[in-house]
Each structure stands twice: as structure tokens, then as C-alpha cells.
């Protein structure tokens, strides 16, 4: 019993526990079942059941996988193109600045030693919420239907 309590605390998958609890096959002379259970829990990985697709389902699955990869590729290319565009604009702006004013150009490329990047800054996201963070959020109250008595 204590063993099961321990495995529960180890947060092993349910499947593994079930396998461990299954009656151990009789091996050799020393018949201590606990050893077999411990061995199973420690060293045997539960085998994952792979979905067995066939025919049309398999074709569909592969097409979807290909399309997903294609989509990811397209996204990556789009992002790269955007970044390249930004970089080109930046370098053009810096060139322009170099031509107009030497003082401003030097000031633009010098990095201050004392100002560091703020750690607390929010992580930039692709799609920030238009409303920002809702600080006054309260979970909706559960409505209990009135009993008719």
C-alpha cells in the first residue's frame, strides 16, 4: 500500500501505474512481487499507442501535415522578408544621417553603458491584446438555478 502512495506522489502516468499494479509474471524462484513492481515503475516506459491510420484517413492526415509545414514555411518567409525590409530601411536612414550630420550620427551609434535593457519589460507578442491587461478582472459568478419546491 505504501508503495502505491509513493508512486502517486511521483506523479507517474496513470498507464504506468496500472501496468505496475498488474500481476507480475512468475519469474525464477524468489517470489517477491514488490521487486518486479519496482523494476517496472523505475525502468519500463509505457508504450504509446500510435493511431493506426489507413487509406483515406492516412491520405487526409498526410495532406494536412504537408499543408501545415507549408504554412509554417510561408510564415517564416514572410517574417524574414519583413525583417529584411526593416533592416534595409534602418541602414538607409543611418546612411542619410551620416551624410547630414556627423554629430547626430555618432550619437546614434554610441551605446550608453549605464542604461541596460529593462528586465521587467513585457515580452513583445505578435498579437497584443487591444485592451491591454484587465487588472480588475473578477471571475463570473456561477448562477445556481433556484430549486422549485
Amino acid at each position: 500500500m505504501s508503495l502505491f502512495a509513493r508512486t502517486g506522489r511521483l506523479s507517474l502516468s496513470r498507464q504506468q501505474l496500472l501496468r505496475a499494479a498488474a500481476p507480475a509474471p512468475v519469474t525464477g524462484g524468489s517470489g517477491d512481487q514488490r521487486l518486479e513492481i519496482i523494476r517496472r515503475v523505475l525502468f519500463e516506459q509505457p508504450t504509446r499507442e500510435t493511431p493506426n491510420l489507413e487509406g483515406e484517413a492516412l491520405q487526409q492526415h498526410e495532406t494536412i501535415e504537408r499543408a501545415w509545414k507549408l504554412h509554417q514555411n510561408q510564415e517564416r518567409e514572410r517574417r524574414n522578408r519583413e525583417l529584411e525590409k526593416k533592416f534595409r530601411k534602418m541602414s538607409a536612414a543611418m546612411n542619410e544621417l551620416e551624410k547630414t550630420s556627423d554629430r547626430l550620427f555618432k550619437a546614434a551609434i554610441v551605446k550608453s553603458r549605464h542604461i541596460t535593457f529593462p528586465r521587467e519589460m513585457k515580452i513583445p507578442t505578435e498579437t497584443p491584446s487591444p485592451q491591454g491587461w484587465n487588472h480588475d478582472y473578477t471571475p463570473p459568478v456561477e448562477v445556481v438555478p433556484a430549486k422549485n419546491s
Binding site: 487526409q60 495532406t63 504537408r66 499543408a67
Partner: peptide, 8 residues
């Protein structure tokens, strides 16, 4: 699957 076909 329909979406995938459309994208392809």
C-alpha cells in the same frame, strides 16, 4: 483537410 487543400 479542406483548409489544407485550399492552402496547397
Amino acid at each position: 483537410y479542406d483548409e489544407a487543400l485550399k492552402l496547397i
